[in-house]
Simulated scan of single mutants.
Amino acid sequence: MIRFGVIGSSFISQKFIETAHSTQKFQLSAVFSRQLERAQEFAAPFQSAQAFADWQEFLAQDLDAIYIASPNALHYEQAKAVLLAGKHAIVEKPMVCHPDQLAELLRIAKENKVFLLEAARNTYEAAFESIGSFLRNHTILGAQFSYAKYSSKMPELLAGTEPNIFSEKMAGGALMDLGVYALYASVTLFGPAQKVAYQAQQLPNTVDLNGFGYLDYGHFQVGIFAGKNLTSTLVNEIYTDKGTLVLDSCQHIQKATFYYHDGSHIDLDIHAPSDNMLEECLSFIHIIEKGDQVLADSLTQRAEAVHQALYDMRQVAGIHFSSDPI
């Protein structure tokens, strides 16, 4: 049984706990919040969980892993402390705000013989293995990946407040949220891009509400679209010399259909679980229990490519965070 703690009391933390418990391999043992009452309220439904507002006391608990789902700008320092405490860190995407932070965390994880894992759920999907296998006999001509969903925090923003998801102090924005899924789809299937760019509709604080980007692979390009102030119903497409593969999404993929140039089509064999966090939880369990360094290293390579792309895209668009190097 993997004893784990949670930092953050949002909906995503609640969902992770539910999915983790459903595997019968995870047990929530500790919850941290800066407000003890909030931690107690969040931990109350789980008899095995203690609530903490003292950071050092929380880190001193007998835990195997800690899931970090705080605002983006806090991930690096919290993950660093978790790794130095000798515990595996499972960090909600995006893991960091700058590629140098990721390099530092990976060094610390290696020195302390623990794993640093990013909870970017679509890179763990078996659907991508099926898609990648199907595409091996095709010449890739391009792709389009999009994920845009109207944020529940938009009313607050429109009312004149600045929620964390739209704050430059908290490293918010569309690219640093839903855009991560589009980037992971591209990197998981095609690897690191040679060059990237991004143009966005931005707030006065430079944080993006939505934006279009591209990844240049030399002999083909991949377009991405991410948004938090609107909802997109676009399908995702991969273009090849033999036809077009249409995906219902770039994350939690449940349907993939290939349309040949002659008009015929076939459906790929995709079996996605109803719980969109299950595959990542099972992967975390496998890596932690088996000590699968090969899989962990493969995921690290993807994470490095995604975080470099995120940073480079922000520089092109002029999206600046308080946590950025001077």
Score class of each variant (00 low, 15 high):
residue 220 F to I: 02
residue 220 F to W: 05
residue 220 F to N: 07
residue 220 F to K: 08
residue 221 Q to G: 11
residue 222 V to A: 05
residue 223 G to W: 05
residue 224 I to H: 01
residue 224 I to A: 07
residue 225 F to N: 10
residue 225 F to I: 02
residue 226 A to G: 04
residue 226 A to R: 04
residue 227 G to M: 08
residue 228 K to C: 01
residue 229 N to W: 04
residue 229 N to Q: 02
residue 230 L to M: 13
residue 230 L to K: 13
residue 230 L to F: 10
residue 231 T to L: 10
residue 231 T to S: 13
residue 232 S to E: 04
residue 233 T to P: 00
residue 233 T to W: 07
residue 234 L to F: 07
residue 234 L to C: 03
residue 235 V to Q: 08
residue 235 V to G: 07
residue 235 V to T: 13
residue 236 N to W: 04
residue 236 N to K: 11
residue 236 N to S: 07
residue 236 N to V: 00
residue 237 E to D: 03
residue 237 E to F: 09
residue 238 I to Q: 09
residue 239 Y to N: 06
residue 239 Y to R: 02
residue 240 T to G: 02
residue 241 D to N: 14
residue 241 D to Y: 15
residue 242 K to E: 00
residue 242 K to M: 06
residue 243 G to T: 02
residue 243 G to F: 01
residue 244 T to W: 00
residue 244 T to R: 10
residue 244 T to L: 03
residue 244 T to G: 04
residue 245 L to E: 01
residue 245 L to A: 14
residue 246 V to C: 13
residue 246 V to S: 14
residue 247 L to G: 07
residue 250 C to D: 02
residue 251 Q to C: 12
residue 251 Q to G: 05
residue 252 H to T: 06
residue 254 Q to Y: 08
residue 254 Q to S: 08
residue 254 Q to I: 05
residue 255 K to D: 09
residue 255 K to T: 11
residue 256 A to F: 01
residue 256 A to K: 09
residue 256 A to V: 01
residue 256 A to G: 06
residue 257 T to C: 11
residue 257 T to Y: 05
residue 258 F to Q: 10
residue 258 F to R: 07
residue 259 Y to E: 05
residue 259 Y to M: 14
residue 259 Y to T: 07
residue 259 Y to G: 04
residue 260 Y to S: 14
residue 260 Y to D: 14
residue 260 Y to H: 13
residue 261 H to I: 02
residue 261 H to T: 11
residue 262 D to P: 09
residue 262 D to Q: 14
residue 262 D to S: 15
residue 263 G to M: 06
residue 263 G to P: 00
residue 263 G to K: 12
residue 264 S to I: 11
residue 264 S to N: 08
residue 265 H to A: 15
residue 265 H to N: 15
residue 265 H to C: 11
residue 266 I to L: 14
residue 266 I to N: 15
residue 266 I to S: 15
residue 267 D to S: 14
residue 267 D to W: 05
residue 268 L to Y: 12
residue 268 L to K: 14
residue 269 D to N: 06
residue 269 D to G: 02
residue 269 D to T: 04
residue 270 I to M: 10
residue 270 I to H: 08
residue 271 H to A: 15
residue 271 H to M: 10
residue 271 H to K: 15
residue 271 H to G: 12
residue 271 H to F: 06
